[in-house]
């Protein structure tokens, strides 16, 4: 039986050094709501936990010139209580707030949801739709990548040895912008997305779409950006024909599996349904801004 060590460094550099030295059985510990369950279920047996919550950058939400920086270890509850962020990116915040239960929200972090790399992670489609970027610290320094480049498969990320996520960057919003996230679960809460859809739009003064991004979760090995959505929406209003095309594009983008959470047929169909519903909400929010 290997011993388990716990460290809680106060600087990014110290965390990187610990993770690099710890090798493949070292794990980053933020909220722990996935990590602890995996340890209890004996799915993983880490030898080192590096708690990143004492590194100040990971725990802050700061408004900078062009973007909002959200620390990787900011919890769902903290995001939900941040009025300014919620007003700017309501879809991202509501996606994070869907994770787990009220109690779990006090621990679960936005960075953890991303790095756990579940294809069904609620925050990820919303973040991709928002064109968010991930800030990564590692032995080679700091780099940042688009969120969609982070997960590479179920449970796997593009992080290299010794790297960890310090924060996420959300672009600042202009006027007439809105986003939304919807998921389907067979219950009303305490469940994992069978399909998740994030949509972000900005509108022209005449009410037509200026920019649009849509991403799907739980319908492929990783959350994916539906590139066709932009072509369908930009320049148009959200009429019946556009919605039908959007639903079709969402369904076409699916390559799901049959598993305990849903069937291929169901996921493919519902992705289209939720795409239209999420787009309508994002649109409505954009019109009000």
């Amino acid at each position: 039986m290997a011993e388990l060590k716990y460290e809680s460094p106060q600087t990014t550099e110290a965390a990187v050094a610990l993770l690099a030295a710890g090798g493949p059985t070292a794990r980053v510990f933020a909220g722990g709501t996935d990590l602890m369950v995996q340890m209890h279920e004996e799915m993983i047996e880490p030898t080192l936990l590096v708690d990143i919550k004492r590194i100040s950058e990971t725990r802050q939400i700061t408004f900078e010139d062009d973007y909002v920086r959200i620390g990787a270890a900011v919890t769902g509850a903290e995001l939900g209580e941040h009025a300014e962020l919620k007003a700017m990116w309501p879809g991202v915040v509501e996606a994070v707030e869907l994770i787990g239960s009220y109690q779990v929200q006090g621990r679960a972090t936005i960075g953890g949801n991303l790095c756990n790399a579940s294809p069904a992670a609620d925050s990820v489609p919303a973040l991709i739709a928002a064109a968010a970027r991930v800030v990564i610290a590692g032995p080679g320094g700091v780099r940042d990548i688009p969120v969609e480049d982070m997960p590479v498969g179920p449970g796997r990320t593009s992080l290299a040895a010794g790297e960890f996520v310090t924060s996420l960057l959300l672009p600042k919003r202009a006027e007439r912008a809105g986003d939304a996230y919807l998921r389907f679960i067979p219950r009303t809460e305490m469940d994992i997305a069978v399909v998740g859809v994030g949509v972000s739009v900005t509108l022209n003064p005449d009410g037509t779409c200026a920019t649009a991004r849509m991403a799907l979760g739980a319908v492929a090995p990783t959350a994916r950006l539906v590139k066709a959505a932009s072509d369908i929406l930009v320049g148009n209003k959200l009429d019946h024909a556009v919605l039908e095309a959007l639903a079709e594009a969402a369904s076409d983008a699916c390559s799901p599996i049959d598993d305990k959470r849903g069937t291929i047929v169901f996921r493919t169909k519902v992705a289209g349904v939720l795409a239209c519903r999420a787009a309508a909400i994002a649109w409505q929010r954009a019109e009000k801004n």
């Binding site: 219950r187 809460e189 305490m190 469940d191 598993d259 305990k260």
Partner: peptide, 24 residues
């Protein structure tokens, strides 16, 4: 109960064995 082709139970927790929660 959801079984795989080998007869192994797939949903061994309340996450995927979907009993109603209060809001349901």
């Amino acid at each position: 109960y959801i079984y795989d082709a080998e007869g192994r139970l797939q949903n061994t927790g309340f996450l995927d064995y979907r009993m109603p929660v209060a809001s349901d």
